[in-house]
């Protein structure tokens, strides 16, 4: 299946997509460092805030945009991190279903986050709409 392993600086080069996934996970984590600090400052701003203040916060495009980006990048990072955790503890023969479920959970989480954030940013009528 695999050709003779290649080495770079005495380190084996990944034969398939392992290194790409590792890099993507690290890039997502790197992006989450400033975003996490921003979430922290947001938590400080919104602690104890009333409904009007929260709606006004979501009304800012910058706030809503950063929150949506944070949600999507976190879900990307978490799905990759959970894949690594599952690979460590679940035998190869029975892990593909679990990885699929974990990816699906974070896909739904990201999509739902963007859905609610966009509605709040656009000032849509409270859900359930049209009732």
């Amino acid at each position: 299946m695999s050709a003779a392993p290649k080495f770079k600086n005495n380190v084996k080069i990944s034969e398939r997509h392992g290194a790409g996934e590792w890099k993507l996970e690290k890039l997502a984590l790197l992006a989450l460092m400033p975003l996490g600090l921003w979430v922290l400052s947001t938590g400080f701003t919104l602690a104890g805030a009333d409904y009007g203040a929260v709606i006004a916060w979501f009304g800012s495009t910058l706030n809503a945009g950063l929150l949506a980006v944070t949600a999507v990048v976190f879900c990307l990072f978490a799905s990759l991190a959970w894949k690594v955790i599952i690979e460590d503890y679940v035998p190869a023969s029975s892990r593909s279903g679990l990885v699929l479920v974990s990816n699906l959970v974070f896909l739904v989480l990201a999509a739902a986050s963007v859905f609610f954030i966009v509605r709040l940013a656009l000032g849509s009528a409270p859900l359930p709409a049209g009732v």
């Binding site: 976190f74 978490a78 989480l109 986050s113 609610f116 954030i117 509605r119 859900l127």
Partner: peptide, 21 residues
């Protein structure tokens, strides 16, 4: 990472509640 995943679900719930009026 496990706790943050649970926390993300909780925060999503909070955003959903805000969207409910």
């Amino acid at each position: 990472i496990g706790a943050a995943s649970v926390g993300a679900v909780l925060l999503l719930g909070w955003v959903a509640i805000v969207a409910c009026g």
